[in-house]
Design a protein around this nucleic acid. Structure first.
Lengths: 168, 168
DNA sequence: TATGAAAGCTACTATAG
DNA sequence: CTATAGTAGCTTTCATA
C-alpha cells in the first residue's frame, strides 16, 4: 500500500474535491424539481446520461443532496394556522438543548426547529388546524417543557421559499 | 342534464371533498421520499397502481402537493453560515410588504422568507459562505431597503425538519 | 471519469369489469 | 376502484476508451 506523500505547508487539503460547475447545476436543477428525470438532468448539464447518474449518486453519497421531499400546502392539508415560536432556555445544558430539538421535531405539527444564537434559543415552526390547537400545542409541548423559560408565538402569514439560494 | 338536488341547511359543502386516509398516507409518503415510485406508493397505500397514479395526480392538481424538491446540505455546498434575520418595517403598506417578500426571496443565499405577526414583520432565513458575506448581505439587502427600520441577525446553529408534521 | 448501447423498469394510457 | 396489457420513456449496467 503506497504511503501518502508529505503535504506542503498551507491550507489543509479538502477531503472532498470541491464541487464543479456541473455538480452545482445538477443541485440547482434538483432543487427546482426533485423529480427531474436523469435524462433531463443530463441534457441540462450537457453530459451523458450514465455520467449524470453517477454524478447525482455521488452527490447523495457525499451528503450534499440529503433527500428529496414533496412540498405541500399545509392549509389545504387541514393545517391553516402556522406559527413561529421563539423559545428561551434557562440552563443551556447541551443535553437539554439536543433533547429539545430532537423531541420537538418529532411532535405532530412541527415543520422544523431552528437552534439559534441570541436571546432566544430556538425557533419552532408549527402548523395547526386552528388557533386553539396552536395554543394547546404551545402550552402542552413547549411552555411546559423542563428548561423552557419563555415561549413567544408569532403567527406566520406567509412563507416564501428562496428561488436562488445557491448563487452566492 | 339533471339538476342538483336542493341542499339541506347546515354547514356549506366543501368545494373539495376532504382528504381521506389514503390521500394522507400518500402525502406522508411523498414527504418522506419525494421520488417514491408509483408502485411503492400503491403498495404502501394498499391500492391499485392506476388508482394511486390518479390520486397523486389529483393531489398535485388540487394544489395540495405543490412540488418536489431536493434537500441539500448547505454547508457542504459552500454555505456554512446560516442566519435568521428578524426584519422590522415602518410603514406596513401592503405594497411594501409584498415587494419585500418577493424581492428578498429572489436574492442569492435566501433560503426562505417568513411574513409574521408581532414586533418583527419578517424572518429571513439566509445562508452565506462566511460571516463577512452574511454581514454584507444584511447591510446591502435588508438594512438598506426602503421601509426597513431594523434588522436583527441570529446565527442558525442547526436546523431540524419535523418528522411528523401531518399527524395533527 | 466519461461514454454509448442494450436490457430491465416504470409511468402512463386505454380498456374492461 | 381494480385489473390487465401495451407503449413510450426512463434508469441502470457494462464494456470500452
Amino acid at each position: 500500500m503506497p504511503k501518502n506523500p508529505p503535504r506542503p505547508p498551507g491550507p489543509p487539503p479538502r477531503p472532498r474535491p470541491a464541487l464543479d460547475e456541473v455538480d452545482r447545476l445538477l443541485v440547482a436543477e434538483l432543487l427546482r424539481d426533485g423529480r427531474a428525470p436523469n435524462t433531463a438532468l443530463a441534457r441540462a448539464a450537457g453530459i451523458a446520461e450514465s455520467t449524470c447518474l453517477a454524478r447525482v449518486r455521488a452527490l447523495r453519497e457525499r451528503g450534499i443532496v440529503t433527500g428529496v421531499s414533496a412540498e405541500v400546502d399545509l392549509a389545504r392539508l387541514g393545517l391553516p394556522v402556522q406559527a413561529m415560536v421563539a423559545v428561551r432556555f434557562s440552563g443551556h445544558l447541551r443535553a437539554d438543548v439536543d433533547a429539545f430539538a430532537e423531541e420537538v421535531s418529532a411532535l405532530p405539527g412541527v415543520v422544523a426547529t431552528y437552534n439559534i444564537s441570541g436571546a432566544n434559543d430556538f425557533l419552532v415552526h408549527v402548523a395547526a388546524p386552528s388557533p386553539e390547537h396552536l395554543r394547546d400545542f404551545v402550552l402542552d409541548n413547549l411552555t411546559g417543557r423542563p428548561g423552557v423559560v419563555q415561549a413567544e408565538t408569532s403567527l406566520v402569514f406567509h412563507v416564501r421559499r428562496g428561488t436562488d439560494v445557491l448563487s452566492t
